[in-house]
Design a protein around this nucleic acid. Structure first.
Length: 573
DNA sequence: GCCGTTTTCGGCCCGACTGTTTTCAGTCG
């Protein structure tokens, strides 16, 4: 069983945490954290890179030493450095690091002086008054730490669509002060990340005191964490934390850049600045004392010698080098999308009729809409058998004669059965305009079997698009295990396409796999999988996922007109 | 532990807020 990149990344992260608590060299710790992130963001399997000795050390932040460690982990599944760190540390100590307000320095004091091994020990020590008089543990910080420890139920990240709603309402509230000149949502929400940890908002305004007070008095605020004249932080009732930062107009671009992140991207940009003798911070770009840029983000990039980099690319996954070498992608935009290739109607589990969905899609300016009911296997939602599918096809033909401005495509979301065969016979599939295929059962087959199942399904000459490829539900169901690179290569060889499902619960295919797919040369369809009219508006989330995967309009088939798309759907014999 | 268009040694991003300080360390983003 190959070692996954995520497992290697987690091992490095744990080493970094444990070294930090030990008080090891901070740059060594940084090196492990950096390496963890690089491995997690790879578009290829690290285990495959091990074979080529140079491939690993060519990665940024991976030198001879760490390359050797990655190789050893891939070979043996074990990481001696981690085991040594664990043997030196108290067992539950790592969870302490996740308590806000409790960092490595304080944890070290707890371990050394009180022999505390975890959250439970911490509570007991505090109840017993053992923290009193210890340097760095005043009454306020102890109270904060205990309160935070109580709410420690693992990491909570908010789904993109929810974060977007919460942020928009808050921005509207702040605009109500009429003191705001510019306001933007930054952070991972602006980068279109699939989940958002907390919200970052920045503004320029007439009276920062009034705006900060307005922020703290927002009706959804549960707790004010910090309250300064330029920066404040609150926790909302929904559980999400929000930072608001107020900056001068001449610093707005610099602050937007800084607050948008990602942190590794910012560090990379600042480091480029340092090499040019410049200081880059959230107020601008400075040469000595003199500000030479920062009103716009474009100025920041220009001063460090780069073209503008779109927020979705700012993950330090190669975008800095690409920018320097003039090979940044020309990212696909929502307005490039000309049709939707996955939706349901009342014929299976959708809420609206074909006519209603068609009209809604036409209003959105789409040129075509594929009607993709479930196939017979999904009996629970009255999936279509051959007979009902043919009836629907005849209705669609008639509708297309009447409809103006939009074309309905005859289609179906056909189940991929366990043996890799499709749920409907070839003679009906061949009559469809486009065949969308997906897995809804046996999502947890062993990786080798799952890979074979998907590729066998693609061997069917009528297979066009693999829908929600990994089957994951964000925060609820892990992705199915299969060899994603083999599947992507098989798709390219057969002229099959891969869906990017825009449902905020799915966002499937994940961004790093989109990037792998692009490198392999496979084409994508961004689809909403709409079950109701309002779902057609989810397209924006699919597009931002595609952008995070570096996709350009030519990588996405539904940026084409129907005649062009029709050509692409013809599979090689 | 990584890295080099000043460097193979000596650097490694930067600032705000809080609490506990009596001038600053710790934490966070």
């Amino acid at each position: 069983m190959p070692v996954h990149n995520s497992e290697i990344a987690e091992m490095f992260e744990e080493v970094a945490d444990l070294l930090e608590i030990e008080g090891a060299n901070e740059f060594r710790i940084r090196a492990y954290r950096n390496a963890s992130r690089v491995v997690a963001g790879l578009s290829k399997s690290a285990a495959d890179l091990v074979a080529d000795e140079k491939a690993l050390t060519e990665l940024p932040g991976i030198g001879k030493d760490l390359a050797g460690k990655i190789a050893e982990i891939c070979r043996t599944g074990k990481f001696p450095v981690l085991e040594e760190c664990r043997s030196r540390a108290s067992p539950g100590v790592r969870t302490l690091l996740r308590i806000p307000g409790l960092g490595a320095k304080r944890i070290r004091v707890l371990c050394d002086e009180l022999k505390i091994t975890g959250v439970e020990d911490l509570r007991k020590a505090a109840d017993g008054g053992k923290l009193q008089g210890i340097r760095g543990f005043g009454p306020k910080i102890v109270q904060k730490i205990l309160a935070e420890a109580k709410g420690l139920n693992g990491e909570t990240r908010t789904k993109l669509i929810v974060a977007e709603e919460i942020a928009n309402s808050l921005v509207d509230w702040l605009k109500g002060t009429r003191r705001i000149r510019q306001i933007e949502i930054a952070g991972s929400l602006r980068r279109g990340k699939e989940t958002v940890g907390d919200l970052d908002i920045l503004a320029t305004c007439e009276d920062s005191g009034e705006v900060m007070n307005c922020f703290a008095n927002y009706e959804e605020v549960k707790e004010v964490i910090s309250h300064g004249s330029t920066r404040s932080s609150v926790k909302l009732r929904s559980g999400i934390n929000v930072d608001l930062r107020v900056v001068p107009d001449e610093s707005f671009g610099a602050a937007l850049h800084y607050f948008t992140g990602s942190k590794p991207h910012n560090i990379a940009v600042r480091t480029l600045g340092v090499k040019r003798g410049l200081k880059v911070n959230e107020y601008g770009v400075f040469k000595g004392e003199k500000q030479i840029g920062g009103r716009t983000e474009q100025e920041i990039y220009a001063q460090v010698g780069l073209p503008y980099i779109e927020p979705e690319l700012r993950e330090d996954r190669g975008e800095i080098d690409a920018a320097r070498e003039g090979r940044l992608p020309w990212l696909v935009r929502l307005e490039d999308i000309r049709g939707n290739l996955h939706c349901h109607t009342t014929d299976s589990d959708g809420r609206y009729s074909i006519e209603e969905m068609a009209e809604a899609a036409r209003e959105r300016g789409y040129e075509y809409l594929a009607i993709t009911e479930h196939s017979q296997r999904i009996a629970m939602v009255r999936g279509l058998d051959t007979k009902r599918l043919r009836q629907q096809m005849r209705r669609i033909d008639k509708l297309n004669e009447k409809l103006k401005g939009i074309r309905l495509l005859k289609s179906c979301e056909v189940d991929i059965l366990e043996d890799g065969s499709l749920d409907l016979p070839d003679d009906v599939l061949k009559e469809l305009d486009v065949v969308v295929c997906s897995i809804h059962s046996k999502l947890n087959l062993p990786a080798e079997k799952q890979t074979g199942r998907i590729i066998r399904a693609m061997d069917n000459p009528h297979f066009n698009i693999l829908a929600h490829p990994t089957g994951r539900l964000i925060g609820r169901r892990a992705p199915s295990e299969f060899d994603i690179e083999r599947v992507l290569k098989a798709a390219r060889e057969r002229g099959c396409m891969i869906e990017i499902n825009a449902q905020p619960d799915r966002l499937d295919l994940p961004d790093i796999h989109c990037k792998t797919g692009k490198e392999i040369g496979v084409k994508f369809a961004i689809s909403t999988d709409a079950h109701r009219i309002s779902d057609l508006g989810l397209m924006r989330f699919g597009v931002s996922q595609a952008r995070r995967g570096w996709l350009e309009p030519q990588d996405v088939v539904n940026t084409r007109s129907w005649p062009e798309l029709q050509e692409l759907l013809k599979r090689r014999p």
